[in-house]
Amino acid sequence: MRRIADWLQHSLAANERRHSRKILRFTNPGDYRSFLEEWVRRLPGIDSPTPVRALGLIQALACPIPEGDSPPSPGDRIICEEDEKVAIAGLPKGEITSDKGIPWGVRRIKAPEAWSRTTGHRIRVGVIDTGVDFQHPDLAHSLERGINLLQRSMLPQDDNGHGTHIAGTIAAANQYYGMMGVAPRASVHPIKAFDNNGTAYVSDIVLGIDWCVRNHIDVVNMSFGMRTRSKSLLNAVAGAYRSGVLIVASSGNDGRKEEIDYPARYHQSVAVGAINRQGRIAAFTNRSPLIDIYAPGERISSAWIRGKHRIMSGTSMATSHVTGAVALLLSYRPGLSPAQIKAILKQSAKPLKYGKAPRLAGELDISRMLHIAERDY
């Protein structure tokens, strides 16, 4: 791997050429380990801080490479892939609200009826997003430190609002003065991978999933999507699935028929579409037979930065309802595998009364979900 390290060191020093973000995946685990050993040996002799990041979960590197350049690799031992941009899956921001108590979506999925049996206690929920508002009173009892992948020395503080909204729906616990989420005693671990504009790169997402696996997170909310397929992201999602970590992902908000976003499109994740108050599929939802379940996603009130509450719409909001439901399920039936959780969600889904949803997908119903889990698992 010395030749690869020579090439990469030279590429990083090529300031006269325009660089683009790439992911280099090693197809042989031994090659990956050998490269890292060689690279660590060189670090003391490299003048400036290196932008090379190791993506251990998928045996890859994320780094800037001069355009048109490629690693000198024999055969297919190293695969070079664009480090694509990813966007959070929320529609334009709605209005600030003074709503309090239990939002309509939390009621619709019958979460309150389950709280006498399960509240999500001891379940660790990863939220890969824009961070959270650590000062929000609705989240005071729900938040753990998490990680800021953009600035490692800082808390994953939300500078956008999207991540706080997602965390509120999952696990807010302030019924009398604020709002209640689906699983009010679950622990939310925010992973800040997205900047204040709601943009991240695939490598940031992979690092976030890697962190969740290493820190024994039970379920991960990924309220974002991309239209292009990334093998690196697939490998990370599949790696989490094999490790017992379920990923819940949004189908996207482009109103497309027969096509949904990645990573929801990967069969190892739970793909979520949105419904409105009437139980109809929301017009903005991407839909296809690959959707596993629908949940409330239109005009959802939840926590917002600076201690406020805001109404938002999008498959992001639907996804957070499903993630909260999974936290309730895992607290009620610990030890369920990702495959079992996905099967329970699909088996217990309530048939949609309206629209043209694929017959395989229905609406999230927590009472039915717990009944199926108790009866069959």
Rank of each mutant, 00 (worst) to 15 (best):
G168A: 01
T169E: 02
I170N: 01
I170V: 12
A172M: 01
A172W: 01
A172R: 04
A173G: 15
N174A: 11
Q175W: 08
Y176F: 11
M179S: 11
G181Y: 02
P184L: 09
P184K: 12
P184Q: 10
R185M: 07
A186P: 01
S187W: 02
S187D: 05
V188S: 06
V188Y: 02
H189N: 10
H189Q: 06
P190A: 12
K192M: 02
A193W: 13
F194G: 10
F194E: 09
D195G: 13
N196Q: 14
N196W: 12
N197C: 09
N197P: 01
G198L: 04
T199M: 02
A200H: 15
A200F: 14
A200L: 09
Y201K: 06
V202M: 15
S203M: 07
S203K: 13
I205Y: 15
I205D: 11
I209G: 08
W211A: 00
V213H: 15
R214M: 10
N215I: 02
N215P: 02
H216Q: 07
H216Y: 08
I217Y: 02
V219F: 02
V219S: 01
M222G: 06
M222V: 04
S223N: 03
S223R: 08
S223W: 13
G225H: 14
M226N: 04
M226T: 14
T228K: 14
T228Y: 06
R229Q: 03
S230V: 02
S230W: 13
K231I: 07
S232I: 08
L234Y: 15
N235P: 03
N235V: 03
N235R: 14
V237E: 08
A238F: 15
Y241T: 04
S243E: 12
S243M: 11
G244Y: 03
G244L: 08
G244F: 04
